[in-house]
Design a protein around this nucleic acid. Structure first.
Lengths: 139, 139
DNA sequence: TTGCGTGCAAAGGTTTTGCATGGCA
DNA sequence: TGCCATGCAAAACCTTTGCACGCAA
């Protein structure tokens, strides 16, 4: 498996990737990255962050997804490997939290969809919308 | 079951709802509504469409969802009834089409998620991201 | 040196807001 | 008449683009 790499390995890129690695599975938005860079004393423009994130998505190191219109794009570091099977995203429409739920049942469902309906779901980019337990309890 | 209605039933609102009803399950964006209003000779501002759509979402007559950042919000007429069970949304990340797939397998999955993981998924707002059959075949 | 990366400013697109006017009940 | 709805313009946001400069290889 070839590695598709950007031509230059700049300081900015290193810092961004370093930060993303440290998040390990957590979701981040562009402003998070900018804030973290500032905290680390790395001066980096918003444009650069957008461009690096775009590149990382192309390289498959990061996935990008969102749920509601107008909200900033949500990114997640996945690394070189495409592991982490059976880990899905759920967004609560009330409290806005993004939850990760591991579940094996889904695998069968997705296989069924692929085989019988022809659609190959990419769970790294899919976000389930709904209500989390806490918000349901307090309703 | 009470009906939550907007106070005034204006001409604009009637026209918009009338058009949405005629789409029956198809997804529309704000510019579609504006274009259709223009075609019908109804002069209506974009702001009004946004505000009416927002209200219709609150009333549960319309659902709103999207998949990728920067894209316009996607609306779907569902009417007063919350029928149409087992009908899910799939968006192809290659050709951009939004497909509707009916499937009974999902019901069990969603029940499992609700009971064992505590998260109640709202499938009317959830969009599965992936690749459609046609795009997979032509790859 | 060559070409990619970066930053600033500006533009693009969608959606929201302020305020005066118009319309429904 | 009293609210609510509407429209226009402007603003708010997120994101992308143009262009000159900086830096990696």
């Amino acid at each position: 498996m070839e590695q598709i790499r950007s031509k230059y390995n700049t300081r900015h890129r290193q810092e961004i990737v370093d930060y993303l690695e440290s998040t390990q599975g957590e979701h981040v938005i562009v402003s998070d990255v900018c804030a973290e860079m500032a905290k680390r004393g790395v001066k980096v423009g918003t444009t650069t962050v957008y461009r690096q994130m775009e590149r990382l998505v192309e390289e498959g190191i990061v996935t990008r997804f969102t749920s509601f219109p107008g909200e900033p794009a949500c990114y997640q570091y996945v690394g070189d490997k495409s592991e982490e099977v059976g880990h899905y995203h759920f967004k609560c429409k009330k409290c806005g939290r993004l939850l990760h739920i591991s579940c094996h049942e889904f695998g069968h469902c997705m296989e069924h969809i692929k085989i019988d309906h022809g659609f190959e779901v990419d769970m790294t980019q899919t976000v389930f919308i709904g209500l989390c337990k806490e918000c349901r309890d307090t309703e």
